[in-house]
Write a protein that binds this DNA or RNA. Structure first.
Length: 259
DNA sequence: CCCTATGTTCCCAA
DNA sequence: CTTGGGAACATAGG
């Protein structure tokens, strides 16, 4: 479920709660999520984000890499108590517990060496160069929306924010990436920064079950312009928001003002 | 039974 | 070899 703004919200909250704290023990309840070495006594040095993945640096060369995929959630609680359904692992600290809950079991957890952090593609919040995007899109016939969601090109954008960004930029998500003009790439670049920064400030989009580290809803669902609004009136031009499918994902856009 | 779901990866055909 | 589309992964909810 989580995209860049949701993961960035988790990162900030995790950093505040975990930095400098020592791990008492780690328990994995679902082997499918991954395996862990003995982490007893390890200290959290930093929490970083790489696209939609979280890195928990544990000093030395050791780090945990966590990816929430579709339904993963992290929950911090000061006290103990019964584990929620679908809890996949737990890290215990003197100050509380960090639980990972993931109904669909797509999330991944791995212990890795810090140097294995091989960030190849730039973070969507760092991309400010329309010319660079246009170059990357050169010759590509795939829909511009699918292009923006390709984590090998740039990282962090998922289905909701791809829809919102293209709406903000007034570009039709079906357009072949290579057909997008420089002016349109400029609009997309600006929309990307605007939408993602605002969504981070709102601590993400709680459309169904996204909750932050402390179980709180985000606020960006109140500011969505197209996502999940099919059949409703476009706030910009009065047209009707349509839903189509691109790359197997529900895609929302306004055919009258996104060209 | 059908469809949908904030993600990634694999397979296949062109 | 590259590109793009679709299925698969696993589970819950409407």
């Amino acid at each position: 479920m989580p995209e860049l703004p949701e993961i960035e919200s988790l990162r900030r909250q995790l950093s505040r709660v975990l930095k400098g704290e020592n791990i008492g023990k780690a328990e994995v309840y679902d082997r499918k999520i991954g395996r862990l070495p003995d982490l007893q006594g390890r200290t959290v040095a930093a929490v970083r984000r790489e696209g939609k993945a979280l890195w928990v640096d544990l000093g030395g060369d050791l780090a945990l890499r966590l990816h929430m995929r579709m339904s993963g959630r992290l929950l911090w609680r000061a006290g103990g108590g019964a584990r929620p359904a679908h809890t996949r692992f737990c890290l215990f600290f003197r100050t509380g517990e960090l639980l990972c809950v993931d109904p669909r079991r797509f999330a991944t957890l791995e212990a890795r060496r810090t140097e294995e952090d091989t960030a190849a593609a730039p973070d969507a919040l760092q991309v400010k160069d329309a010319a660079w995007l246009q170059k990357a899109a050169q010759g590509r016939r795939l829909p511009v929306k699918t292009f923006l969601m390709d984590q090998r090109i740039l990282t962090g954008i998922g289905n909701i924010y791809a829809c919102e960004i293209l709406y903000d930029a007034a570009v039709d998500p079906h357009r072949a990436a290579r057909s997008v003009s420089r002016r349109e790439w400029r609009r997309i670049t600006e929309a990307m920064a605007r939408v993602l920064k605002t969504a981070v400030k709102c601590r993400g989009t709680s459309i169904s079950d996204w909750r932050d580290l402390h179980g709180e809803k985000g606020e960006f669902q109140n500011r969505l312009q197209v996502y999940d609004r099919s059949g409703q009136t476009c706030r910009r031009c009065g047209g009707t928001v349509q839903r189509t499918v691109l790359g197997g994902r529900g895609t929302y856009f306004c055919p009258s003002c996104q060209r």
